[in-house]
Design a protein around this nucleic acid. Structure first.
Length: 579
RNA sequence: CGGGGCGUAGCGCAGCCUGGUAGCGCGACUGGUUUGGGACCAGUAGGUCGCGAGUUCGAAUCUCGCUGCCCCGACCA
């Protein structure tokens, strides 16, 4: 490819709204262009990368027995009604009507579609296990797309679905898929990618893992044990082995706490620490039911955990009127002395097990000292005591007891053990050996292709642009001719270009005759791992100047006669790392 | 959902307060001089100033409505 022909200009200036390096470089380098909020066109450079990522994914999916299929992006709503997700999923699911007034959706994931396919296509235990996958467009009407290609509304996803006759078989396959994912993320050049325990969220199922590319701009928070191996979990489900202060219960004592509405105010006023208080947090669910949460004052409610406990996908803070309807006084609320009929009460272990806490008195400007859940709440029926606390950095690891480390990550892939979550409601059965119909046991496995590209860019770049790994680089080599209007430069460049093409080297030839600085800046934005410069100066010495993208301003001279072979050897060597 | 900010040439922005011929930089085009880390000179093209109403002799500028986009918060008892 000649650079003079390449569609997609490099830009000197970053888009105004770009905050993260992948966003800046992918737009500046001419990899993608915004169309609307969260919608991007991929230009040739970006598309060359995603094609390579897709190819690596295909190889690894095929290696574990996957068969590629392609399902439609537009799906009938009734399929989603069968699974029950049509009503459960919020506005993220784009719903519309076709010309006949039939309810349709844009696919955001394809469990329903694949089950519909499987239940007609797979009828016998002899056909199982089987895995199908596709690399296809997904649409999610995100509330807030951000960070360029990292969170978008329309994106390419590899989604795979496996079908089994037993949970054991699913687990075995899940492990193989986990290993395939590790190979994929290593091969596309992510330098730091961890699989962590995760919340299965909207997709559902019991066990799931997320693959996290570690990056400061990541949206997810990860907690891991100091060794990085014993325990790794998403903040949404992470737990800790926090110690609670246990002592002899002291008598309850009502104290005046004028104008102390926040935990900090109360603790300071009473000479306590926030961890010696209990805080009351009020939410409401979709049906406007009050949810009364109690947690130790220094901890925060983990809404992802809470949503699971109360089995509601939506959660909002309750307004004062709703709080007062339960007899609680906002700012001075607690469980003590309240009639909590019809209110969902959730108590975190930290509040249930700590002794002698400060709690609200349900009376303006008053609190109680020495509240003990066990002693002071008479009727515990209907109260759920469980873990709904958000883990903090430094809290003791649930496995090792060592202080947990906190990392930020970009979720580039996830795998789920679905079990029968879709096969039972959607009647996806097979005939077993005994002649009986049984629901298939399912797994599903996703990778965001564009996000993976952006994640690699986040991990592999310098001040001037991306430093692409050989396995996914849009071009393996960039060849720059300086003073190319001089015939001997032109002919030397043309000759090398032809030689490389003949050997199927992916070479981008900067034949524009721009000034050196201009060409170099473009080359840095394009990020080819290898760069060759030919100029009157190098020709005078019978050499070409060679450098790797990650060598900064350093370079070495290679005799012109050997440069082609030199490049080919380096490409082969580099590619071996990504096999 | 809540809060804030912004829509002026392909991109980045100024002009608005104080109404009076629509500007700058980058990019593009032509010609010339240049040629090792985003060169210089001269010239050219490119804009319903987001949309609609109102005020006014006159609106990018003031008022109202709409719309699009961006950022922040999604934690307070």
């Amino acid at each position: 490819m000649k650079l003079s022909q390449l569609v997609g200009q490099r830009l000197k200036e970053a888009p105004r709204d770009a905050q993260t390096s992948s966003h800046v470089f992918l737009v500046r380098g001419g990899y993608c262009r915004p169309v609307s909020t969260g919608l991007y066109t991929l230009l040739p450079l970006g598309r060359r990368i995603t094609r390579k990522i897709e190819q690596i994914i295909r190889e690894e999916m095929d290696r574990i027995g996957g068969q590629e299929v392609l399902m439609p992006v537009v799906l009938p709503a009734d399929l989603w009604q069968e699974s029950g997700r049509y009503d459960k999923v919020g506005d993220e699911l784009l719903r519309f009507k076709d010309r006949n007034g039939k309810d349709m959706i844009l696919g955001m994931t394809h469990e329903e579609a694949v089950v519909q396919f499987a239940r007609t296509e797979l009828v016998s235990y002899k056909q199982l296990p089987v895995m199908v996958y596709q690399i296809q467009t997904k649409y999610r009407d995100e509330a807030r797309p951000r960070a360029g290609l990292i969170r978008v509304r329309e994106f390419t996803m590899k989604d795979a679905y496996s079908f089994h006759t037993s949970q054991e078989d699913l687990q075995k396959y899940y492990e193989r898929c986990h290993e395939a994912y590790e190979r994929i993320f290593r091969r596309i050049g992510l330098t730091q990618c961890l699989s962590i325990l995760s919340d299965s969220g909207m997709i559902g199922g019991a066990v799931s893992h997320e693959f996290m590319a570690i990056a400061d701009c990541g949206e997810d928070t990860i907690f891991c044990s100091p060794d990085g191996v014993s325990y790794r979990a998403n903040r949404e489900i992470a737990t800790s082995r926090l110690a609670y202060v246990k002592e002899e219960p002291k008598p309850l004592e009502k104290v005046q706490t004028p104008h102390c509405k926040t935990i900090e105010d109360v603790a300071r006023f009473l000479g306590k620490t926030p961890s010696q208080t209990c805080k009351a947090v009020f939410y409401k669910d979709k049906e406007n039911h009050l949810i009364f949460v109690n947690i130790r004052g220094d901890l925060e409610v983990n809404e992802a955990k809470l949503k699971k406990v109360i089995q509601s996908p939506e959660l909002e803070f309750a307004n004062d009127a709703l709080i007062e309807s339960a007899g609680a006084v906002p700012g001075f609320a607690s469980l003590y002395g309240l009639d909590l009929k019809g209110v969902k009460v959730i108590v975190d272990h930290s509040a249930a097990e700590s002794s002698n806490l400060v709690v609200g008195a349900n009376e303006t400007d008053f609190h109680y000292l020495n509240f003990n859940f066990e002693r002071d709440v008479a009727d515990k029926s209907g109260i759920v005591v469980t873990d709904i606390a958000t883990v903090r950095e430094g809290d003791p690891c649930p496995v090792t007891g060592q202080p947990l480390k906190m990392l930020k990550g970009i979720e580039v892939g996830n795998i789920f053990q679905l079990g029968t979550k879709y096969s039972i409601p959607m009647n996806c059965n097979y005939l077993d050996q005994d002649g009986k119909a049984k629901p298939m046991i399912m797994g599903c496995y996703g990778i965001g292709v564009g996000r993976a590209m952006a994640a690699v860019c986040e991990q592999c770049h310098d001040d001037y642009g991306p430093v692409w790994p050989m396995s996914i680089a849009p071009f393996q080599v960039e060849l720059i001719g300086l003073n190319i209007n001089q015939p001997e430069v032109r002919s030397a460049c043309d000759a090398l270009y032809e030689e490389l093409l003949q050997h199927h080297v992916e070479v981008l030839y900067d034949d524009r005759g721009e000034k050196a600085g201009f060409s170099f800046a473009d080359a840095d934005l394009i990020g080819a791992p290898l760069r060759v410069v030919i100029s009157p100066k190098t020709l005078a010495n019978g050499v070409a100047e060679f450098k790797r993208r990650d060598w900064g301003r350093n370079s070495e001279n290679i005799p012109l006669a050997q440069i082609g072979e030199h490049l080919r050897n380096l490409i082969d060597e580099d590619m071996k790392q990504f096999q």
